[in-house]
Design a protein around this nucleic acid. Structure first.
Lengths: 198, 198
DNA sequence: AGCCGGATTAGAACACGTTTCAGTTTGAAC
DNA sequence: GTTCAAACTGAAACGTGTTCTAATCCGGCT
């Protein structure tokens, strides 16, 4: 209970040097993604910037998808961490959910290229990365479930949270591909939340 | 009113030879995707099988994504066509929607590799393919909107149809990446539909 | 200190999406 | 039938994700 670590599924093992390499790699990934999106995250460039050999990068992350989805998990954890620092405002599940949705959406929209890189990776992932993808999916579901109210969620709460997560993902994709504006996204999320939570 | 053509956004132009090339290309794409999924749809292979030069393939479809999403639109149209041939059974919007969902989901699950290829392409699409992606999105929305009841849909109907489409897409992705079983998908869809349509 | 096995490195090599180019074919206008 | 632009072809070439290899490095063991 003493350590307040980022409890990524498998982050804290290996020597200090190895943990540092992993950190450098993810750092480089986020920096490149933030500047140029999915295409700018080139494996050679990541390796160079993280000061590891290309082969080493592939030892840590077996594909570009694994790499980006792991980075996404890291980001989501950071967001969730910040969220859980203050209690969620709002009296109704509707208000609280909308608050969380806006916070998360805002965080992504503040860094569109990063959002693009991570969303495309998440959506393109094949079964070999399903562990990483599942970790992210669980994080999302948990975030929206907690939003509804404090205490134990019912099965119904979970179902609603999942639907909201689905709508959120779809809209994220639409926004990233410029089929929907930031405003569209906010409106659709609000509408969907209202439909689900009265 | 005489022609009962497949009214794809832009399918019916050019000489007969051109229409035939386009048809052969899409045919080859569907065959390859059906056999081996996204990875098996290799541009050189498609070109060879359609008996056109690689450059010609790229003249018709500027990227693998455009190609696959166009093929998806074609498939969706076919499904919708078959659907509209018989009236949708069910007395309530809930029943009717579930019927349509099961029909569409079933069609995709009957050809998992094809579903994988088209879903991944749809989700990975970048803004350059947004026209094609939008065409598909519109088809989906229309299908679910029509499912609710006959006649003009209200704004509320549309919103609900969109949410259902979002849930459907998310579950399709989860199924394709083997994070969810066919059964999971059916259950989640039913649950979401119930939540939305009472 | 010397040894060992796994981790790391630099770099070549391979696969496939995409681009480019020089030459040929096609078909519409005259 | 000739002419011309656009479409098509075959083939080479490029970029980036991924794999492979031989050499070197590192940390723990005796």
């Amino acid at each position: 209970m003493a350590t307040a670590r980022t409890s990524t599924t498998d982050a804290e093992q290996g020597s200090a040097a190895q943990r540092d390499r992993r950190r450098r790699i993810l750092e480089a990934t986020l920096a490149l993604a933030s500047k140029g999106g999915y295409d700018a995250v080139q494996m050679r460039t990541v390796a160079e910037r993280a000061e590891v050999a290309l082969g080493t990068l592939y030892r840590y992350f077996p594909s570009k998808i694994h790499l980006l989805v792991s980075a996404l998990a890291l980001e989501l954890e950071a967001i969730q961490d910040k969220l859980s620092r203050k209690p969620i405002p709002g009296d109704t599940a509707y208000d609280r959910t909308l608050y969380v949705l806006n916070r998360v959406t805002g965080a992504l929209q503040r860094d569109p290229m990063l959002a693009e890189a991570m969303t495309r990776a998440f959506m393109f992932a094949d079964p070999s990365a399903s562990a990483e993808v599942n970790a992210v999916a669980r994080l999302m579901e948990e975030m929206f479930t907690r939003a509804m109210h404090d205490g134990e969620p019912t099965a119904d709460d979970r179902a609603k949270a999942r639907v909201i997560g689905d709508v959120w993902l779809s809209n994220l994709v639409a926004w990233v591909t410029r089929r929907a504006s930031a405003n569209d996204v906010v409106n659709h999320l609000e509408l969907a939340t209202r439909l689900l939570l009265h």
